[in-house]
Nucleic acid binder design. Sequence first.
RNA 1: GGGCGAGUGGCGGAAUGGCAGACGCGCCGGCCUUAGGAGCCGGUGCCCCGUGAGGGGCGUGUCGGUUCGACCCCGACCUCGCCUACCA
Length: 857
Amino acid sequence: MTTTGDSTTDAAAGEGRHRIERYDPGAIEPRWQARWDELALYQTDLANQRDRYYLLTMFPYPSGDIHIGHWYIKTPTDAIARYRRMHGKNVFLPIGFDGFGLPAENAAIKNNINPRDWTTSNIANMRRQLRQMGATFDWSAEVVTCDPEYYKWNQWFFLRFLEAGLAYRANSPVDWCPNDGTLAREQVEGADRHCWRCGAKVEKRALDQWYLRVTDYADELLDFSEIQFPDPLRIQQANWIGRSSGAEIVFETAPSPHHAGGEELRVFTTRPDTLFGATFMVLAPEHPLVATLTAPERRSDVEAYVAATEAKTEIDRLSTDREKTGVAIGADAINPVNGKRVPIFVADYVLGGYGTGAIMAVPAHDERDFEFARKFGLPIVRVVMPRGADPEADLDAAFIEHTIDEVMVNSGRFTGRPAAEAWHEIVGWLAEQGKGRSAVTFRLRDWLISRQRYWGTPIPVIHCERCGIVPVPDEDLPVVLPDTVDYAGSGVNPLTRDEAFLNVACPSCGGPAQRETDTMDTFIDSSWYWYRYLAPHRPDEPLDPDLVESWTPVEQYTGGAEHAVMHLLYAREFTKMLRDIGLVQQNEPWKRVFNQGQILGTDGERMSKSRGNVQDPDELVARYGADTVRLYLMFMGPWDQGGPWSPSGIEGPYKFLHRVWTIALDPHGRDPGDRNAGALPAGESEHDARSRMRATAHRTLRDVTTDYEGFRWNTMVAKLMELANLLSRYRGTSVAGLAEWDEAVRLLLLMLAPAAPHITEELWSRLAEARGEAWSSIHTASWPTVDESVIVEATYEVPIQVNGKLRDKVTVPAGISEIELEQIVLARDKVATALGGRQPHRIIHAGGGRLVNIVVR
RNA sequence: GGGCGAGUGGCGGAAUGGCAGACGCGCCGGCCUUAGGAGCCGGUGCCCCGUGAGGGGCGUGUCGGUUCGACCCCGACCUCGCCUACCA
């Protein structure tokens, strides 16, 4: 509270003085929160099959403190829950914690504590802070992913995926520090790529790691027909999946002194029409044939280049000149369409992991190839050009247009053909000879789930010298993380040194064997938690099939835009995998997703502890109350926009709630500072005032309802402010406390209830008590219905434009005809002046007579 | 380099083809007060004319286009933010 001492305010009301209690959120909010808990108002009866509404919001990572960003996601979500309940929905709004992850481990290494202890105490604190929001979370369904009863099922799923061929093992490189082992991307620092802890130079190391075969689902993931995403989200996912259709073309190596030739080199291209212009080939440094094809005299150069690539791989962003580099390997390939020999290079602009890891380079029609050819003096042959252009003219840049109007040149029998048709003809011709076929490639890669870390779900396999990789039998699950953990001051996964954990008998042969020490990516944990919420402690199964069938897909999912491509895509993939192993019947986990924007620090940067710009809501809640903080966050701007945090406007919603308080409890009071006190607005009769209150209340209800449906909180709050302002104007006048007044106050409280649940509950109770009615929560009341008949007004104002410029306004009776309106409009002085004697050429009646535009020449 | 998004008063924002600036912050004036960092009332885009009531002009990043009419749709450009890193 901003004031101390006197908790009442004087209200002089002509005939006497009375006192009403001041609005004191600090007194009201904890009381109602306790009451709601006591009544278990928000424990959802999942067995109740009627009007189910599963509302899901992204569960927090237990970093230690709830910050203002959490409020920005969760309190409007709570408003959705409350709004839906007022529509009779049986709403389920669960909450939990995404317990595993790197920060716990970093804190543990730094302070020599157990990540579990760190996480557990953070969760305890965050539970307390989450309760201050006054949100209707069903805490009885809470899920914490680092509990063995949860991660057991990650392991169980993994074993099913393994059986189904959806999980596999492959060798791939990681960033490796000699002292601290595998490093996550954010643990590699600086342009010289050193370790965040010890500063050692980071290397690449190839490890056998586990993958999930999510690329099998690439095409299906591009089908968004069963999931409603906002456009930018859908586009981002589609770009991330990155489907390209083109052709795979087989080149053969040419014979040379050190190599017999005839080795197949497959390339992927989206421009098979440019095949005749392929004047060299480029292999990725990782390409398996680099070693075999390289000529002896080129070997040292090539090996040096490959090694240099390994050292940088992830790009040094600072030196963005990105001049093309590469080396010739001293071997040629043969272009299958014209039999020409073309030299082969190794260059890092070709990626090992995309397509076939090799390209045919067509410098005339690809910017990167063009740049490379220029630098190495390679021939540039134009094969596609606009109709009528000179085929031999020098190009000063790659010609990459690919519309319908280009024509082939320098392309043997295809010369003169339209390029768009030649694209297919060349692929067909190659296919006939077994030298190519049309092909589709995706940007999306299989999901690497292995992490060389302690604080995650142990991958449930055992390595036996005799039997190889043996899955842990189901009855031995969960493979529990050992509680005693000794980091020994290093980032290296302590499981690799934990003899008690490591050594086991092989489940297959009984011989000595060792456990897998890799743990799972934590995105696994967050890929199915909404199913577990429905049966958080079920001992025998990961999920309750009946409840999953009846309650999912989730009706509405809310969470930050920063998860657009990672979590929101992984979870879709995971759902499809669960479907394919027979656990769920659905194709998509959620029906609708809303991505709200991010709240940045006051400096405009992402909030993070290291930047020191984290905004703590506790202080604001202590000062203004949760209702004000909730309202302010909704009022700031569009929910999907976010933006830098600034508390400078918070007084607005705070004053608004004060005003609502005063209107509700003291309709007859007058403020000594109010010059108009007690008088109706000039020219307004009591009858006018009464219909205006009704009309405004119902119009507000109509508009606010649409705003709630579209999550447009800022305009919703603004409209409630307008209604409160109107009522405030009438306070202390003869219409205050009349039936229309009471109705408007009632509607105002009901409309405000989902957003500001405490103050509305308090006022609702007091008003009921004053009327001698029994208590019932405002949050169990029904959303009111609009009475359209009271909104209709007898007259309305018409703006008058001349040539699109506003010149006048006139008030006319509702239902006036266009002809009558025109006569009135043309008789106006200002219109005559604006016309300046010219005759109207045309008169536009826009929006059914809501605006008139007179066109003159 | 690519993708996505955004540019509107001093500030957050409203209006998504029809009265630009709703609502709020801030600021200015006033009331009430012993006092005001509380509360309440009024004003507030910029410029010009007018003593006044009032009147006029300009204005949504820039330039063009479509339209009776454009903050809104289309094209080009500029600036900022987010995501991403040469995806053949």
